[in-house]
Design a protein around this nucleic acid. Structure first.
Length: 163
DNA sequence: GGGCTGATTGTTGGG
DNA sequence: CCCAACAATCAGCCC
């Protein structure tokens, strides 16, 4: 399934009627960002308080995958670069420059992570049930340790040349 | 001395 | 459907 083609050119528009939806969206985003700053403050506290025992962490997005590699390169290029904001901005800027083709490998990898996460989440949910179950037979060390390492090099993805 | 913030975007999950 | 929060990283700064 190749899809997700409607990204920028999909405006459905047709009539020349300028839609302000963009403005509206931006407005909301701005609000969200503003609140985000504030949330960050208590976020740390809340997170600690919650502390999920076995909840799988979210898989790194394509951007993060790229960023991981980018950080190494950036550090080599800028050994004096200290701080995450520096690399973050640089990475974000570069990421925007990357094309779908370049991002493809990163995105694909992210997809793998999602696959793992998907299974992990299933197990996580299952665990929840297990907890509630609490039947006599528990005490299982690790039944689902990590056998997801099956397909590591199984890359079957037809290279779709961009059009 | 220890702990959190800061910045990037994407992705996922919940409401 | 839409929003909100979080995913890593690392050094610097605050209490």
């Amino acid at each position: 399934m190749k899809d997700t083609k409607a990204k920028k050119g999909a405006v459905t528009g047709k009539g020349g009627k300028p839609r302000n939806e963009e403005k509206d969206l931006k407005k909301k985003k701005l609000l969200a960002v503003k609140d985000e700053k504030f949330k960050r403050r208590q976020l740390k506290k809340e997170r600690k308080a919650k502390k999920d025992p076995n909840q799988p962490k979210r898989p790194p997005t394509a951007f993060f995958v790229f960023l991981e590699e980018f950080r190494k390169t950036y550090k080599e290029s800028h050994p004096n670069a200290k701080g995450v904001a520096v690399v973050g901005k640089a990475g974000g800027d570069k990421w925007k420059e990357l094309t779908d083709a370049e991002k493809a490998p990163y995105v694909r990898k992210a997809a793998q992570k999602k696959a793992d996460y998907d299974k992990a989440m299933a197990t996580y949910k299952q665990k929840q049930v297990d907890e509630g179950e609490e039947d006599g037979s528990l005490e299982e060390s690790e039944k689902s340790k990590s056998e997801i390492n099956d397909d590591e090099e199984s890359e079957e993805e037809d290279d779709d040349d961009d059009e």
